[in-house]
């Protein structure tokens, strides 16, 4: 009788019952994550915003002061330096990471043993901890006994003090960062290249298209989406520069390599002024949000046109 009733039953009732149970299990499926998300990300986000409106102390005690922390930030030359350092650092790292990553992917997208080995080499640094990367690179960069200094003196040149020169410190950290992070963009591009339909190339070859034309008219357009992913991921990552600067230069010389996150850390845990630190955090959040959104919508806009 069951099957008989099933076919005979009015469809509306059935869907209603099904959708009710579907809604219930849907909520059950997403609930565990949403709870974690709400408690560990959304709540701290809002309590951070609330905190940024207070003169608040790391060890308790706070007083509502409205937007004064923000006003103070925009008058604080050290903070403004940190903001421009951060933007400069993003500029120094994100385009090279994207372009070098793409270049390596194009060069190593084949099945030879050498390519496999080099792919491994270029990705290997990504698994190292930031504290080890900085230890290694300090020993490469320092003018007394560093690798570069040793090479320079052996050809009769004088060593360069990368980390103590106001113009070189941040580029040196950027170089270290590119060395550390190049694996991921390369892999993402490699993956995208694997997805480009091969018959497109066959067709182009029949048309007698050269290598560069194939690159420009087939390869690059096909991996546009991946390029966007790489840029957005790297933007979010590199805006958050912290460990490299904290360990290699302490933000110096004279704040020339002080990024926003290190500023937040110092204000929070050395000056104990967590309301002020929270305000700086919100600015960082705003900047990342704007940068990611701009990228995203710019790419979207181009695509839809």
């Amino acid at each position: 009788m069951d099957s008989c009733e099933q076919t005979a039953a009015p469809s509306t009732r059935r869907t209603w019952a099904a959708s009710k149970s579907e809604a219930r299990s849907g909520l059950l499926f997403v609930a565990p994550y949403l709870i974690v998300f709400a408690v560990l990300l959304i709540y701290p986000l809002f309590s951070g915003i609330w905190l940024s409106l207070h003169k608040a102390d790391l060890f308790g005690g706070s007083q509502f002061i409205g937007a004064q922390n923000y006003a103070r930030l925009f008058r604080d030359p050290v903070f403004l330096t940190a903001v421009s350092n951060t933007l400069y650092f993003v500029l120094l790292t994100v385009p090279p990471l994207t372009l070098i990553g793409l270049g390596l992917a194009l060069a190593l997208n084949n099945r030879s043993r050498w390519s496999a080995l080099l792919r491994g080499l270029f990705f290997s640094s990504s698994v190292l901890s930031v504290t080890i990367v900085t230890l290694i690179w300090r020993m490469v960069l320092i003018p007394d006994g560093g690798l570069i200094a040793n090479l320079l003196t052996s050809i009769g040149r004088s060593p360069v003090a990368f980390l103590s020169d106001a113009h070189l410190a941040l580029p040196a950290i950027a170089f270290t960062t590119i060395w550390w992070c190049i694996g991921l963009p390369m892999m993402l591009f490699l993956a995208a290249l694997q997805q480009v339909p091969r018959d497109l190339y066959e067709a182009a070859r029949l048309d007698n298209a050269g290598r560069w034309r194939m690159l420009a008219s087939i390869t690059l357009p096909s991996i546009r989406h991946t390029a966007l992913v790489v840029v957005v991921i790297e933007l979010i990552l590199q805006f958050q520069l912290f460990g490299q600067a904290q360990i290699m230069t302490l933000g110096g010389p004279n704040n020339a390599s002080l990024p926003m996150v290190l500023f937040i850390y110092q204000v929070g845990f050395q000056r104990w002024d967590i309301g002020y630190a929270a305000a700086a955090s919100e600015i960082l959040f705003g900047m990342i949000l704007i940068a990611a959104m701009t990228q995203y919508f710019a790419a979207r806009g181009r695509e839809s046109r």
């Binding site: 320092i142 003018p143 007394d144 006994g145 003090a161 980390l163 103590s164 020169d165």
Partner: peptide, 12 residues
């Protein structure tokens, strides 16, 4: 000496 950090100066 120029551009030395603590470790470098100590060794120098």
């Amino acid at each position: 000496t120029r551009d030395q950090d603590y470790t470098a100066a100590t060794a120098a």
